Simulated scan of single mutants.
Amino acid sequence: MFFRQISTPKEYISHHLQHLQFNLHTLKLLSGHNISTNFWILNLDSLFFSIILGLIFLFPFYKIAKNMQKNPNKIQTAVEILINFVNDNVNDIFHAKSQLIAPLSLTIFVWIFLMNAMDLIPVDFIPLFIKYFFHYSTIRVVPSSDINITFSMSIGVFILIIFYSIKIKGGKGFLKELIFQPFQHPIFYFFNFILESISLLSKPISLSLRLFGNIYAGEMIFILIASLIPWWCQWILNVPWAIFHILVIALQAFVFMILTIVYLSMASKKH
């Protein structure tokens, strides 16, 4: 345990589960508006690391795409393998024509993988760095363990589902799909609408909660190990768990990508 001033495991765990936050509610109160809600709170650490990891993804891919070589180096080869992997999955699942789905799927897979991979950094490493230079140690570095980040990504996918449904089927076709299936008899139309609406709304919820739950659980295990075991022997448990967690990190990024492709493929089909 590196934070010696935090005396108990409970305090240590609570400390590492606190976000660096910016409260817009306070600013609105100072401006004279009487607002009694905590909705407008930004988790600055989640936003910061999400943006940084997004740039880490975009910059090398842009440089490699701009300077393609006939005899590729190792980095270009790895990028090409990754692009082919994503492209094969898109071609197998999404059969409509779209210039968005493949780049979107690649972005989702790599971005979520990078966010998940932050879980492999030792629990106290970045907080100690921040504390040394900025005298502030309350920070979380795994964006995908923040429900706000995972839910915002799933909302983006949900908006695309609605967009493609209306674009391909039209407004009437989209409403008919909600009303006339799975049961064809008029007595079931209202029941169909409720059932299909719940099914539609459950897609972004399941996407966000699945990713959040798995990564949050992995983060909690790392924090528990750091809080209960002396730092000099934490590697005995950390190394095996980290090796296993690499599979979880990749799998959760893959599942989010695949489900996005499946949902958009379903939205693009006329029934």
Results as ranks from 00 to 15, higher is better:
133 F>L: 04
134 F>N: 03
134 F>C: 06
134 F>A: 05
134 F>P: 12
134 F>K: 06
134 F>V: 11
135 H>F: 09
135 H>W: 09
135 H>E: 09
136 Y>A: 13
136 Y>T: 13
139 I>G: 09
139 I>H: 06
140 R>I: 01
141 V>M: 12
141 V>R: 07
142 V>Y: 07
143 P>L: 07
143 P>A: 06
143 P>G: 05
144 S>W: 12
144 S>A: 14
144 S>R: 00
145 S>A: 13
146 D>H: 12
147 I>H: 11
147 I>T: 10
148 N>S: 15
149 I>S: 03
150 T>K: 13
150 T>Y: 01
151 F>A: 14
151 F>T: 15
152 S>H: 03
153 M>Y: 09
154 S>D: 09
154 S>E: 02
154 S>A: 15
155 I>P: 00
155 I>W: 00
156 G>H: 10
156 G>D: 04
156 G>C: 07
156 G>S: 09
157 V>L: 11
157 V>Q: 02
159 I>T: 14
159 I>E: 06
159 I>N: 08
159 I>P: 05
160 L>T: 02
161 I>T: 07
161 I>Q: 07
162 I>H: 15
162 I>C: 14
164 Y>V: 08
164 Y>Q: 05
165 S>Y: 02
167 K>D: 03
168 I>Q: 01
168 I>S: 05
169 K>Q: 10
171 G>Y: 01
171 G>E: 00
171 G>M: 11
172 K>D: 02
172 K>F: 08
173 G>M: 05
173 G>C: 09
174 F>H: 05
174 F>P: 04
175 L>V: 14
175 L>Y: 12
175 L>I: 15
176 K>E: 08
176 K>W: 01
176 K>M: 08
176 K>N: 11
177 E>W: 15
178 L>Y: 10
